[in-house]
Simulated scan of single mutants.
Amino acid sequence: MKYGFIARHRSVWPTRTMCRVLAVSHSGFYEWMNRAPSQRSQDDARLTRLIRESFELSDRTYGSPRVWHDLRALGESCGMNRVIRLMHLAKLQARHKRRRLPGDTGSRLENHIAPNHLQRDFEASGPNQKWVADFTYIWTAEGWLYAAAVMDLYSRRIVGWSMSDTMQAKMVSDALLMALWRRGKPSSLMHHSDQGSQYTSDDFQQLLTAQGITCSMSRRGECWDNAAMESFFSSMKTERLSRKVYRTREEARSDVFDYIERFYNPVRKHSKLDFLSPVDFEQGLMG
C-alpha cells in the first residue's frame, strides 16, 4: 500500500522524501516498480475493462450492483466490494438521469379519435369481446426498439404483438393482424387504445372498419383508461427487460418474444385469473 501511494504521487512529491516519511527503502520501492504485474493486478485490469464496457452500454447509468450482475452473467465470480473498488479507481460513477423517451411526432387525425367505449371496464365474459392495445419503448445499445401488443381482456392473454425500429402505424397494424390471424374474425369485438398517431392513422382505422371492429380510445392524458396494458408492460419491464443490457435490437426482440410466448402467456400466474396463466385459463374454458 505504501509503495502504491508513492507511485501515484511521484509527480507531486520527491520519491526519496516520501520513502523517508513512510519509513520504506527507496531501493525497495524501485525494485517493486520493476516487478511484473501480479496475477491479482492482471485480473483487476481485465475486470476493469469488463466493468467499463457494462457501464458504457448502460449509457453510464449503472451503479456497482447492476455492473456486478452483468459480470456474473458473463461468468465472472468477483465480489461486490471488488466491483465497487475498481469502479472507484476507474472513476466510473453512475449518473442518475432519466433517459428521454422518444416523442410521438406523428399527426393525430382528429376525425379518427373515438369515444371511450371501454370506460375502464376491464372485465369480459368471454374471449374476443374486448381487446386492448398499446406499445412501449425498449432501450438497446443500437437505439430504441418499439414493441406493440394486443391483449384479450377475458384471459389477459397477449394475442398479437409486433416490434419495429421506428414508431410507425404499421407496427400496431401488424400486432392487430397477428391477433386476428390467431383468433379468427370475432363477430362483436371492441378494440381499445390511446389516441396516438399510430392508432388514429388512416391505415389502422381502415383495418378496424374492414374487420367490423368497434374502436374505443382513452381520454387524452388518462393512462388509467388503459390500465390493463400499462400493467402488462410494467410487469414485462420489471420481470425481464430492466434486468438486462441489450447490445442489439435483435437481442431485445428475442427476449420480448421469449417473455410473451414462453413465459407470460403459458406460464405466468395471473392474480386476476385465480393464479392461472392466460393459456391455462382459456383451456379451462374450452375444457
Rank of each mutant, 00 (worst) to 15 (best):
Y3I: 02
Y3T: 06
Y3G: 00
R8W: 11
H9C: 07
H9A: 01
V12I: 09
T15H: 00
T17H: 07
T17E: 11
C19G: 03
S25F: 13
G28H: 01
R40Q: 15
R40T: 07
Q42N: 05
D44G: 14
D44C: 06
L47Q: 03
L47R: 04
R49P: 14
E53T: 12
F55P: 02
S58G: 03
S58I: 00
D59Y: 14
T61Q: 12
Y62D: 01
G63F: 02
S64Q: 01
S64P: 04
P65G: 09
P65F: 14
L71I: 04
L74W: 00
E76C: 09
E76W: 02
M80H: 07
N81H: 13
R85M: 04
H88F: 10
H88D: 13
L89N: 14
K91L: 15
Q93V: 14
K97V: 10
K97W: 13
R98C: 01
R100F: 08
D104Y: 01
R108I: 07
I113G: 07
I113M: 14
H117G: 12
H117F: 13
H117D: 08
L118C: 11
Q119R: 14
R120T: 10
E123W: 04
A124P: 01
P127V: 11
P127I: 05
A133Q: 02
F135V: 07
F135I: 10
T136Q: 13
Y137K: 09
W144K: 13
Y146R: 07
V150K: 00
D152M: 09
Y154S: 06
S155C: 14
I158P: 01
G160E: 00
S162F: 02
M163K: 02
M163C: 05
S164N: 09
D165S: 11
D165H: 09
Q168D: 03
K170N: 03
M171F: 00
L177I: 01
A179L: 00
R182G: 12
R183K: 11
K185Q: 03
L189W: 02
M190E: 04
H192F: 09
S193C: 03
D194P: 05
D194R: 06
Y199R: 12
Y199I: 06
Y199E: 07
S201C: 08
D202S: 10
F204N: 11
Q205I: 11
Q206R: 11
L208P: 01
T209Q: 14
T214K: 15
T214H: 05
C215T: 00
C215F: 00
S216T: 06
E222Q: 12
W224D: 06
A227D: 12
A227N: 03
A228H: 12
A228R: 09
A228K: 12
E230L: 15
E230P: 09
F233H: 10
M236T: 05
E239R: 06
R240V: 15
R240T: 10
S242Y: 13
V245M: 07
R247N: 14
R247F: 08
T248K: 04
E251C: 03
R253H: 05
V256G: 04
V256M: 10
V256H: 04
F257P: 00
D258N: 11
D258M: 02
D258G: 08
Y259F: 15
R262S: 06
F263S: 08
Y264G: 01
Y264P: 00
P266Y: 15
P266M: 05
P266F: 07
K269I: 11
D274F: 14
F275A: 15
L276I: 05
S277G: 15
P278F: 06
V279N: 04
D280G: 06
D280N: 06
E282L: 12
Q283T: 05
G284I: 04
